[in-house]
Design a protein around this nucleic acid. Structure first.
Lengths: 180, 180
DNA sequence: ACCTGAACACCGTTCAAGT
DNA sequence: ACCTGAACACCGTTCAAGT
């Protein structure tokens, strides 16, 4: 019993650190969220985090996995909607993660772990995008290139601020150019 | 004479700091280039840089202006080449600046000065891109959207590694989708 | 006007020690 | 196994002082 209880509490502690880190990283970004800040918000000593994670980038990755899982659920729920709606939902989801995606790109050059995470993530997105293209009737020989184009347009929309109407227009135009 | 000489030396000193900073920032990126490193390479005390620049982001902007001017010259030299060649030249130029463009994006949230520089730069690129679209025969009503798309594809190519052949393919595909 | 040495507050991370 | 206090090296930046 005691053994079990302690085991549960351990999981809770790590979970709490991760949830707190997620909130702070989403709201304030990587550089503005110090390890000390996370520790304080989680109610532990600054170096305690290092018992659960190798370093700050490791915390970032744990948070990224949560964020991605959440976004996937939201987008997959629209399985039967037209492609445009799903793309817009995806953008909305990633945008709610604040500057996290930009942070990933800027950490890639510092941390090999982040680089590996980024590369895996990117090729996953690419595969999904390619199947969407084929499913939407595109020629297999061109699907890969068009998938990349669409991803880059989405990334551009995420990197630069747009109101909803403009975003809608640009996505529509991209899909029109690709599928006409 | 003495007056003049000192004036010249002043310009030389600032110029040297900037050239050294450009080299370091291009090679090692923003975070890996400390003010102390720049100062040492320029042969001055670390805080001397603060006489010429308000802060580190100010140094970054001075370097960015140099890099952009250089790229503009290279691209404008191809005035009469087809659009595809000019786009590829632009990508090549920006790529030679290493991670500087990614660094700009990640500094935007920290420094208002960098944000302003970024916004100005971005709208300049957008205007140029729109005129290219119109010049290439696109309908005026769609030129703005297609210009944005093309810019985002270019940014995507810059943010992610591609060999020359793949890059060529993606640019060709993008132009084909836009102009067919 | 131009430059410096010394200091400040903060950062990510480590280490030896406690339970 | 889990957590801490104290310390380390480094960072951007400031300040008082020198010429």
């Amino acid at each position: 019993m005691a053994r079990n209880k302690r085991h549960v509490e351990q999981k809770i502690k790590k979970e709490e650190i991760e949830l707190v880190a997620m909130q702070l990283l989403k709201e304030q970004g990587y550089d503005n969220t110090s390890m000390a800040k996370i520790a304080k918000a989680a109610g532990v000593a600054p170096n305690t985090i290092y018992w659960y994670y190798e370093n700050k980038d490791d915390v970032l990755i744990a948070v990224l996995n949560r964020v991605v899982a959440q976004a996937m659920v939201a987008v997959l729920a629209l399985q039967n909607e037209p492609l445009k709606e799903r793309v817009l939902k995806l953008i909305e989801q990633v945008e709610s993660a604040g500057s996290l995606m930009t942070d990933v790109h800027s950490r890639v050059s510092h941390s090999n772990t982040v680089k590996e995470w980024h590369d895996r993530f990117h090729s996953m997105v690419e595969q999904l995008s390619i199947s969407e293209m084929i499913r939407a009737g595109l020629d297999k020989s061109e699907a890969a290139l068009d998938a990349k184009m669409l991803i880059y347009v989405i990334e551009g929309l995420l990197a630069h601020p747009h109101d909803l109407a403009e975003r809608d227009l640009i996505v529509s135009q991209a899909l029109k150019r690709i599928f006409n």
